[in-house]
Amino acid sequence: MSRTIPARRGRPAAAPLPQPKNSLALRLKRISRAWQLYVLLAPAIIYIVVFKYWPMYGVQIAFKNYNPVDGFTDSPWVGLTHFIRFMNSYQFGQVVGNTLWIAVLGLLVAFPIPIILALLVNQLQSERFKKFTQTVLYSPAFISTVVVVGIMFVVLSPRSGLVNNAIQLGGGEPIFFMGSAEWFRPIYVISDVWQNAGFSMIVYLAALAAIDPALHDAAKVDGASKLQRIRHIDLPGIMPVVTILFILAIGNLLNVGFEKALLMQTPLNLSTSEIIQTYVYHAGLQQAQFSYSAAIGLFNSLLNLALLLVFNTIARRANQATLW
């Protein structure tokens, strides 16, 4: 440090010569001085190299015929064979269609509900009722996916389930919900809202709490009704958070909920419940077609990335907050 100060003072502009060597030495010195920080970071770095970048390196098997002896690097190249096989397979249209259906339906229904709930909860005057509502609505987020799907199976059971008992009480015929293709999507989305809406609401409530109360007071003085204040103060106030969460949701569009779809699958609803990722699981891990299913997985990631880029651009055009 002390060496650089006189150098800067003495030769303000015309000293390019000793600078590179000096700054390299300086940088090495700064790095070696911070060695303990690198030690702290090392486990996390090792983790992402082994469990994130190594698999990423392995994605090349999508263009190869993977065999365990040759490993990722030495397996023979086959080009786009696996992609072409997937696109020509009879499942292609169905599997991609099912994935997009669930993703878009989930987004359209499950994304706005937490915002609406947060706006309503935020308007409650009783602090105790507010707290109570919050706690109750977000408690299902702590129930595991396995148990939530287990609840579906018992509550929707055609023989003894709560819902079918109610239907029969009303004079209707029992419905085999978990075994019918047309019920898979509604059940999937409704259970998603049931489990996660309350938890997602918390972020919006935090954003609402950050809005300057003076804005509300001023609007009240001007005679704005609650609905008007929600529309003109609350909504614009949380819009940046909404936009960012929306883009993040798009980014994860084709990834989330895969475990639940897998758990909800029965042989009878496969025609709507088989999505890209469950197909990868079945073809790859259960039938050991590693290269073929890695290609499908890569197809899924690329589709996802494309969606993310498109929506981020739209958000930028609309002059909203963006991810980058």
Binding site: M56, I61, Q277, F290, S293, G297
Partner: peptide, 11 residues
């Protein structure tokens, strides 16, 4: 970017 399920399993 994610390596995906299959390569994670193989690793």
């Amino acid at each position: 970017f994610d390596g995906g399920l299959i390569t994670k399993y193989l690793v």
